[in-house]
Each structure stands twice: as C-alpha cells, then as structure tokens.
Amino acid sequence: MAFFISTIFLKESLIIKNFIDKINGSLFTIIIFWSISQFIQPLFFRIKNIENILTKDLLEWIINALKIVFFILGFSAVLEIWGIRVAPIIAGLGLFGVAVALGAQDLFKNLISGILVLVEKRFKKGDVIIIEGIIEGVVEKIGFRSTAIRKFDKSLCYIPNNQFAENAVTNISKISNRRINWLIGLEYKSTTKQLKLICGDIQKKIVNNKKDFFVTSSTPVIVKINEFAASSIDILVRCFANTNDYEEFLVIKDKLAIDIKEIVEKRKCSFAFPSQSLYIEKN
C-alpha cells in the first residue's frame, strides 16, 4: 500500500508512468493470486464431510495442484501486464512438451499410480505396509512421484509409486485380527494319550480365553497333529488374537507360549530338537 501511494508523486513522465503502472499492476496481481492460493486449504476443510469422501493425503495433493495452477495463472497474468504474450510461448512449447512427455513416461506412470493409491485408499500416512521382496515399513509421505517409507531399522526409503501398481501391497494396519500360526515339535517318545491330552488342553486354554482370542466359525481354533517330521511329532496351533495392535499381539503370544510350555510339562512330555542317530557297524 505504501508503494502504491508513493508512486503517485513519481509520475513525471510517460515512460516512468507506464513503468510504475506495470509494477503496480504486477504487485496487485501477485497479491490477488497469492491470497487465493492461501484460501484454498481453509476452504476445502470447511466443506462438510469432505474428509469422508477424500483421504487427507488426496486432499493435500489437490490443494498443492491447485496452488501450482494459480501460480502459473498469476505468472502468466504478470507476463501479460509487461506485454509478453503467453499464448505464442505455449504454442511454441508444444513440440517441446511432446518430446518431454515421451522422455518422462515413468514420471507420468508414477503420478497416475500415486493418484490411484489415494483414490482407492490402499494406504495412508502411518500405515504399515509390505511389498514382498521390496520394502516393509511405515508410510510417512505419499508424494507426486514417490512414497516415503520408514523401514523398521529407522532408515527412510523412497519407493516409486508405480511399484504399488505393479506389485501386491499388503496393508498390515488393515488387519482385523492378528494370527498365531505355530508348529510345536514334541519328542517321538511321546505316547498317543499324551499327544491327545496336550492338544485338548491347548485348545481349551485358547477357547476359554475370550479376552485374548477371537474365536468364531470363520476363525476357528486349530490344534491338531500336523506331521511326523524328521526329529519331532509336529502339532499345528492356529488361532486369532483379539487385537490388531502389534504390541498387544506380542503380549498375547508370550502368554500363550508360556501356557503351552506348562501344559507340555504337566503331561510329562518334552519339546523335540533337531537330532541325528549315528550307527557304527562292526566287522
């Protein structure tokens, strides 16, 4: 405002007048477009239930894209004020744009893949995801070209978005119930009666613990003899914890492991370990 007022007293010649008018027009245009860009984010978040329709990450994408659009429009308007025609420049860049597009296919592929990730809500910031053989960690940022994932060793890894379109992505944070799937090896000297009692005791322990375990017809408790392995009789223990939180899951697993050991000891059995018997033939 002070600049506008001060220029009133400097209009002594036509050249200076035109120059100052262009500066004033440029500043006014910049302020208008900057103000509009600053109102975009508050305006979006004032729309009722907008976050139920679009994810927070997608909203950030749209807001940033609109800010870029308004920046380009504002810059073009300023160029027009100074007599620089934008339309011929855009037309002249047409062939150049085609060449750039052909050379930037991976960039557009990553951009489209990133948009699909956000629209389909495959994952969001804070989710733990796994891409088999590529990455496992916590999503920190979903960008236009790549996604930042914090690995469990605390290193930060950037994965091109097209990897999420070309590979299966497992969202661990979407797990409804975490599964326990153990093979427990018992010694071959265990009797049939002991094996049946151990299986029954483990199953009762899990079924009766409604607080820690989720037992339904679709998530049954399985405690069965699985196979006769090389050094053990293997019992399969499969059940679902009544949580999707990893730390709570570890506590439940710890308690179940101790319970199983107590049951095996109670039935006078022992856990097997890999062993070999060596027979020496005498001549």
Rank of each mutant, 00 (worst) to 15 (best):
Ala77Gln: 03
Phe75Tyr: 13
Thr219Cys: 11
Cys269Val: 05
Ile112Met: 12
Lys121Val: 06
Arg46Ala: 08
Ile172Cys: 01
Gln276Tyr: 14
Ile258His: 10
Ile72Arg: 00
Lys224Gly: 04
Ser113Val: 02
Cys157His: 13
Ile53Tyr: 11
Cys157Gly: 00
Ala229Trp: 11
Phe214Gln: 11
Val264Ser: 00
Lys154Ser: 14
Lys196Val: 15
Gly200Leu: 12
Lys151His: 03
Lys205Val: 02
Leu27Cys: 08
Gln203Arg: 12
Ile89Leu: 13
Ser155Gln: 12
Ala241Asp: 03
Ser231Leu: 03
Phe28Leu: 12
Val119Gln: 08
Glu265Asn: 11
Leu43Phe: 14
Phe70Ile: 00
Phe33Gly: 02
Asn177His: 15
Leu111Tyr: 15
Leu14Cys: 02
Gly114Ile: 04
Phe70Cys: 04
Asp153Thr: 01
Lys253Arg: 14
Gly114Thr: 02
Phe240Leu: 05
Gln38Ser: 09
Lys22His: 11
Leu256Asn: 00
Cys239Ser: 11
Lys204Thr: 13
Ile159Cys: 02
Lys22Trp: 07
Ile20Tyr: 12
Asn161Trp: 08
Leu118Pro: 00
Lys261Met: 08
Thr55Gly: 15
Thr147Gln: 05
Leu66Asn: 06
Asn209Phe: 08
Ile53Phe: 10
Ser26Lys: 03
Ile252Tyr: 06
Asp234His: 07
Gly137Asn: 06
Asn226Val: 02
Glu132Gly: 07
Tyr246Thr: 13
Ser155Leu: 09
Thr170Ser: 02
Glu262Asn: 15
Pro88Arg: 04
Ser37Ile: 01
Lys224His: 11
Phe3Ser: 11
Val98Tyr: 12
Thr170Pro: 01
Gly94Tyr: 08
Arg145Val: 14
Ile198Gly: 00
Val237Asp: 05
Asn49Tyr: 13
Ile175Tyr: 15
Ile252Gln: 02
